[in-house]
Design a protein around this nucleic acid. Structure first.
Length: 659
RNA sequence: GCCUCGGUGGCUUAGAGGUAUAGCGCAUCCUUGGUAAGGAUGAGGUCGAGGGUUCAAUUCCCUCCCGGGGCUCCA
């Protein structure tokens, strides 16, 4: 049986590896997962089946539409063909998760049609079998000219609509295609290659996730659940959404497109620090920082090929007569730059890094959540050109460790995220020890996804996935070994023998999206808070590191003197409020050090400092220390991290409120 | 994108076919206060936008925008 599915470029024929394909089974079907399908009979043909008025019009919501052409050779064994067809339909319904089916006789799928009698018999058989399998089935009548409207799930894809329209015009059937994508990329991929899920332990045991004992690895269990079973989440608003606003970090911007946020001074500061930190870590590994355009020509031959490989998820804009798209990663600019460079094997591994502010992905609006998933986000994107597989592996391992280090400095350690490693079977067979080495490094079981064929551009990738309070997983760091794009972009280096070679390319985001790091920090702090741990940011990231609270107005001068002796982000709460109120407000801002100054401090040498990291809920830890001791303590905590000055007025009375 | 729930001063919110409640915040004043909310007074609202039904709509109906959750997706 040949199954025809549409992809975005054209209709492609390919066999499923399900073992049910026989050359003799020629029934042609075309499957479209549709928001709705609607038809209306126009005129009967000489071969029309007799129908009542109720079948002259039909509509089905949220259905898998199955266009069918029964072919000459099917007549020999209609029963068998019908069964095989039903089998295939079932498989697809499982993938797209629907139990509603519209059967639609569609002659134009074949040039060798069966007799009308056989066709009707086959259709009825299929309908009956599907009903027995408790599907909700409708069938459009055979032998009528019909008009139909179908709305496919997904994105507008022009090539497809042409294909369908041509088919429709040929037989005089008006077809209105509103929007289409047909069978999603993932589905297409699944048809080509199958994912096998495993758990790999530090001892190198490859286990079945279903039988794995997750005791002590509850988060991994949640992650596996999320990845394989796509578990349902509970009804709860994500805590970070409230926190990002309450802490005046970031907010929605209704005046823009969804998923494009505004960042207030404190949020901008945190982003800026994180950005600089990650860039600096990349630079330490020898990466050269570059800057490339945000928008690219959609019709550039190389880019076009790349875009065609993926579902349309980009913003596009028209400028003059050009169609441009906004980048969704730094790959485009860097690869185009690599293409024009003269690179010797002596220059390898060659690293370039760019902080994309922004990367744009037009994610489906229903999928956007706070800082977790955005349409415009900031991502450090580093690419490493490697001479051969050995060099790529060695770089991969080095960058794997860099990612662990970067996340831990940001405030997310190994217990906060789960590791997924994904690779092709071939790569695994040749590099088992290498893979196990990755698992040993983190010393905990990891999720493995193994493909029997490569269908993305990479042969190996890992991600670190943060698992939040709603059991949702989000990828942070990732490294991938790309075996395809050097060729696509014509990137080459001159080897020691003087010949041109294609490098392997590593894609690495040491931290993942910066906004997502903030999301993870906020979610982690919230989970801590529920566990009875006082929530806070790492000191180097805290918008205010020290707050000075003068007891009365007469102590403000002294507070200013102390502030001038501090070399960190310090502010003064000079508002006319009670000390209690000011302490409470400082706590609400998660300020790591709060120093109250009154007569005692003015007349003595010490400050009275509330140290957040040592406090318990409702039990502030108050420690007496000299200004120099506080300075010393903070400078140890921020050593090696970027620093930016206070983003707001030093005196709180001079600050506006943003939220 | 689809399904579903929601949108009331800057924020959180009560309420109802007759234009509206409270707290926080803000302003002014009193209090000059020592570790998680001191007190008083006041300003501030086209009740998300547009259309419809009605004598009358913020309330009922439709469309749209924005947000939450689910589905789908995540190069």
């Amino acid at each position: 049986m040949l199954i025809k599915r549409l992809n975005q470029q054209n209709r492609q024929n390919f066999k499923l590896d399900s073992g049910v394909g026989h050359e003799s089974d020629k029934m042609q079907i075309l499957l479209i997962h549709s928001d709705y399908i609607e038809y209306e009979t126009k005129k009967s043909t000489p071969v029309a089946e007799k129908i009542g008025d109720e079948l002259k019009k039909g509509r089905m919501e949220e259905a898998l539409t199955v266009f069918i052409a029964v072919e000459k050779t099917d007549e020999e064994n209609i029963e068998h063909c019908a069964k095989q067809t039903v089998h295939e339909i079932k498989k697809v319904t499982e993938q797209v998760k629907t139990n509603r089916i519209m059967l639609y006789p569609y002659a134009h799928l074949s040039s060798s049609l069966s007799s009308p009698k056989a066709a009707v018999e086959a259709l009825k058989k299929i309908e009956e079998l599907l009903r027995e399998a408790s599907f909700e089935v409708k069938r459009a009548p055979f032998g009528w000219y019909k008009s139909f409207t179908i709305k496919c799930k997904g994105h507008p894809l022009s090539e497809l609509s042409r294909t369908i329209r041509e088919g429709g015009e040929k037989c005089g059937t008006p077809v209105k295609v509103e929007k289409e994508e047909v069978v999603s990329e993932a589905l297409k991929s699944e048809a080509k290659a199958t994912s096998y899920w495993h758990i790999l332990t530090p001892d190198g045991e490859l286990l079945n996730p279903d039988g794995f004992n997750f005791t002590g690895h509850e988060k991994l269990k949640k992650f596996v659940n999320y990845e394989i079973h796509k578990s349902r989440a509970v009804d709860k608003i994500p805590p970070h959404v409230e926190l990002m606003r309450r802490l005046e970090l970031a907010d929605y911007e209704p005046g823009s497109d969804p998923g494009n946020m505004r960042f207030y001074p404190k949020g901008r500061l945190m982003k800026s620090l994180l950005e600089n930190y990650v860039l600096e870590e990349a630079a330490k590994k020898g990466a050269m920082e570059v800057e490339t355009p945000l928008m690219y020509d959609m019709n550039h031959p190389t880019l076009k090929k790349y875009l065609d490989r993926f579902p349309a998820r980009q913003y596009s804009i028209e400028a003059d007569k050009k169609m441009l798209f906004l980048r969704f990663a730094a790959c485009f600019g860097q690869f185009l730059m690599n293409h024009d460079m003269t690179i010797s094997y002596r220059n390898l591994p060659l690293k370039m890094v760019e902080l994309t502010r922004y990367s744009f992905r037009k994610e489906q609006s229903g999928e956007l959540v706070g800082l977790r998933r955005l349409r415009a986000f900031t991502m450090p994107d580093m690419h490493t050109l490697c001479r051969d597989t050995e060099a790529a592996k060695s770089q991969f391992f080095e960058q794997y460790n860099m990612c662990i280090n970067v996340l831990s400095k940001i405030g997310l350690d190994l217990s906060d995220y789960e590791v997924a490693i994904r690779f092709t079977r071939d790569f695994y067979e040749e590099n088992k020890d290498f893979i196990v080495g990755l698992v040993k490094t983190v010393n905990k079981p990891v999720l493995i996804e193994l493909w029997d064929q490569r269908f993305f551009y990479f042969v190996l990738k890992f991600e670190f996935n943060f698992v939040d309070a709603m059991d949702k997983a989000s990828a942070l760091s990732t490294v991938q070994i790309d075996v395809e794009n050097a060729d696509r972009y014509g990137i080459k280096y001159i080897d020691s023998d003087g010949k041109e070679n294609r490098p392997l390319i590593l894609h690495c985001s040491p931290s993942g999206a910066i906004e997502r790091c903030i999301y993870a920090l906020l979610e982690k702090a919230n989970m801590n808070s529920e566990k009875g741990i006082v929530p806070m940011f790492p000191v180097w990231l805290s918008p205010t590191q020290v707050r000075i609270i003068p007891v009365a107005e007469k102590h403000i001068d002294y507070a200013e003197k102390v502030a001038s002796e501090m070399d960190c982000r310090v502010d003064i709460d000079d508002r006319e409020e009670t000390v209690g109120k000011k302490i409470r407000d400082a706590g609400k801002e998660w300020i790591p050090y709060v120093a109250v100054v009154g007569d005692e401090e003015v007349n003595g040498d010490d400050l009275t400092v509330t140290v957040r990291a040592e406090s318990l809920p409702n039990k502030p830890a108050n420690i007496k220390m000299k200004v120099s001791e506080l300075n010393e303590r903070i400078s140890c905590e921020v050593l090696g991290f970027p620093f930016k000055r206070n983003p707001l007025a030093m005196k709180l009375s001079a600050r506006p409120r943003f939220v």
